[in-house]
């Protein structure tokens, strides 16, 4: 199974996102894009504020899982293309750590596909997050089920 680039060291920059959009201008069968951007929240937990999340992953397994999820999404929805990126390393509050970009002929498909991708990746892909507080203590993040 072909493995596409998913993991990016550091935050996903607004430039990277705009360049990804620009690259699709030559694909003239596309009628609609949908983008989901995950951003690191400065949650306040027991009076301490999250300053950053340090992401790690079981990369071999994560890439296999994402390849399967991509395949399922292409089977289920009529998509032209699909890009999934997730940050690794320390991402500060306010920065983008997750970028899902789906394109199709029509808008209906991209909404459903994006929701499927975001939810399935959060649930099934072995990515771990250490929430680092402003005082340098930390706790481990768990996605709400």
């Amino acid at each position: 199974m072909k493995k596409k680039t998913v993991f990016i060291e550091g935050a996903i920059s607004p430039n990277f996102i705009s360049e990804s959009i620009a690259k699709h201008q030559s694909k003239h069968t596309i009628g609609g894009h949908n983008i989901f951007l995950g951003q690191v929240r400065a949650d306040v937990i027991d009076a301490k504020t999250v300053a950053a999340i340090d992401f790690t992953a079981y990369e071999d397994m994560a890439l296999e899982q994402i390849a399967e999820i991509r395949e399922k999404a292409f089977e289920t929805y009529d998509l032209t293309c699909m890009h999934i990126y997730h940050s690794l390393g320390k991402i500060k509050a306010g920065e983008i750590c997750f970028f899902v970009f789906v394109s199709s002929k029509h808008s209906k498909e991209v909404y459903a596909a994006t929701e499927y991708l975001v939810n399935t990746i959060k649930k099934n892909v072995p990515i771990f997050g250490k929430e680092i507080f402003e005082d340098d203590t930390h706790q481990w993040k768990t996605n709400i089920k």
Partner: peptide
Amino acid sequence: IALLPPFAGG
């Protein structure tokens, strides 16, 4: 074999 704590991607 891998021991995996709760996932936190996204």
